[in-house]
Amino acid sequence: MTSLVTARGVSKHFGSVRAVDDVSFEIDRGRILGLIGPNGAGKTTLLKALLGLTDCEGDLSVLGLDPFRQRKKLMQNICFIADVAVLPRWIKVRQLLDYVEGVHPNFSRKSAETYLTQTQIRPEAKVRELSKGMVTQLHLCIIMAIDAKLLVLDEPTLGLDILFRKEFYANLLNDYFDEERTILVTTHQVEEIENLLTDIMFINDGKILLDSTMDALSDTYVEVMATGEDAQRARGLGPIAETEMFGKSVMLFEGVSREHLEGLGEIRIPSVADLFVAKIKEARK
C-alpha cells in the first residue's frame, strides 16, 4: 500500500455550514501535494481533520490510523506548521529543543542544532525576540529534525518577505524531502510553489474541484493565445475560461488535444494560478 492518506466521503459541518462536503481522495507516499482554495474553502478544516484536531464524518485514514481517535500515535509520524505565529512567545530556543526532545520519540536534537547553526538564531534567545521570519526558520529547524512520514504546512510562509519564503521552500526541498516523506501544503502564493509540487488539489465550498498530478495537468489543460478568426474558431472548441491580454484572447481548454489547437495561436501550459481562477469561476457559474 503506497497510500498515506485515504479519505472516503469525508464531511465536516459547523451548524448548517458544510465546511468539508463529502470529499474523497488519496495521497501517496513521496509526493508533494498543494491544497489550493480561496479563503473559507475548507482547507484548514480538512487539514485539521487529517491531523486529528477535529472529528469528521466519513472514512478517513492517515498512515493507517484514525486521526481523531489515535492522535498521539499519529503525531509521532506527522509534523505540522499551522501558521507562522504559533510558537509560544515566552519560550527560549534551548527550552523548545529540550521540550520537543522530551516528548517526541523521533526528534533528533543534534540535527536541529545543526540546522540552527546555519541561521542567526541564538539558543538563549526567546521566541518573542525573533523576527517573524526567524520564528518560521526555528519552527522549520525543529520540524526537519523530526523523522516524520507526513509534513503538513498550512500557510507556512504567510506574512514573510520573499527572501524567507524562497529560503523556506529551498530548505524543505533540499534538506528534508525524500521518497519516504510526503508533504501537504496549503498556500495563497501558489505561483511560488508550483514548481515544487508533484500533485495538486483545488478545493472550493468544501468540495474538491480538481485532483491531479502536475504531469497530468499539463496533458489535460492547454492555454491558447489567439486573435481574430483563430480566436473565433478556438472559442468553438469550448474553452473553460477566456480573458483578454494585450488585445489577444487567452483561452483555457480542458481535455482538448493539442493537435486541435495547433495553428490557432500560441500554445502554452497554463499556470496553476490561472487554472485555479478558471476552475473557481467555472464552479461559481
Binding site: 500515535k73 499551522a82 505565529a85 504559533v86 509560544p88 512567545r89 516528548v103 519552527h139
Partner: peptide, 17 residues
C-alpha cells in the same frame, strides 16, 4: 494563555495527548 496566543496549535502538533 495557550489559546489566546495560539501556541495551542504548536503544543497539539506534538505527540502529547
Amino acid at each position: 494563555t495557550e489559546r489566546k496566543d495560539k501556541s495551542i496549535l504548536f503544543w497539539r502538533s506534538l505527540p502529547v495527548t
